[in-house]
Amino acid sequence: MSTNTHTLAVVGSLRQLPTEVESALSGELDAMGRLIERRLKMTAPKWRTALTQSVHMSSPEPLVREVSPGAAYASAVEEGVRPGGKGLPRFFDPASRSIVQWLQGKAFGSARKPRKGSLKFTAMELELRDRYEGLAWSVRHKGTKARPFVKPAFQQLEPTMRVRLITAVEAAMRASAAQGGTA
């Protein structure tokens, strides 16, 4: 039996349970979703917390919770980038803004930005562009190392989540049977 068929069978059988069980599961899923969300935010690689702040939980269906990072580069951080790929966007492309800011912080630190139009500003922009092009070359030719944070967090919390779900269902079934429901 495939995983998809098995999942559909489980969801189908859950829909036939009393409403008390569904509400207990829903509450437990919300709590576990927040737990996973916190764990992802703690373990995500950080720089200006864009990746961390993009982690969110959604509920597309009543008994489904999805916790995922929303940053465009989250998959590149999780899986890494293989050499020979497309590389980074162009320097002046708006898509490169976060990378340019990161590089500027690494290259110039907290140094005051010179007045726009000055020779120092032009020199700083040219150096930043040259560093960016070097970084783009390195990503294109060498790739980037994977820094997984989603999969390890899920694997670490999965045993706890199983136990909590089973406990919530058993408690709701006992409560339903005690009230004369069909358990």
Rank of each mutant, 00 (worst) to 15 (best):
M57V: 10
Q156S: 11
P152Y: 06
Q53E: 14
F91L: 07
W47G: 03
P45W: 06
E37P: 06
V77N: 01
G117I: 13
W102R: 11
E20Q: 13
S58E: 04
E20S: 13
G105T: 05
Q101E: 12
S118A: 09
R112G: 14
G27T: 11
S2D: 13
R162Y: 11
M161V: 05
T167W: 02
D93F: 14
P69Q: 03
I99P: 02
V163A: 15
S68K: 12
A24Q: 07
A76H: 08
E79S: 11
E125W: 04
R39N: 06
E158H: 05
G87S: 07
T160D: 06
R97P: 00
V77Y: 05
Q156N: 02
S110K: 12
S75L: 10
K113L: 15
Q101W: 04
F149W: 08
V64M: 12
E133R: 12
R34F: 11
V81N: 04
S13G: 03
F91R: 07
E20N: 11
L17T: 14
R131V: 02
E37I: 06
M32W: 06
S96D: 11
G180H: 14
A50H: 02
M57T: 04
F92D: 11
V150P: 01
S96G: 14
T7Y: 03
T3Q: 03
R39E: 14
L103E: 03
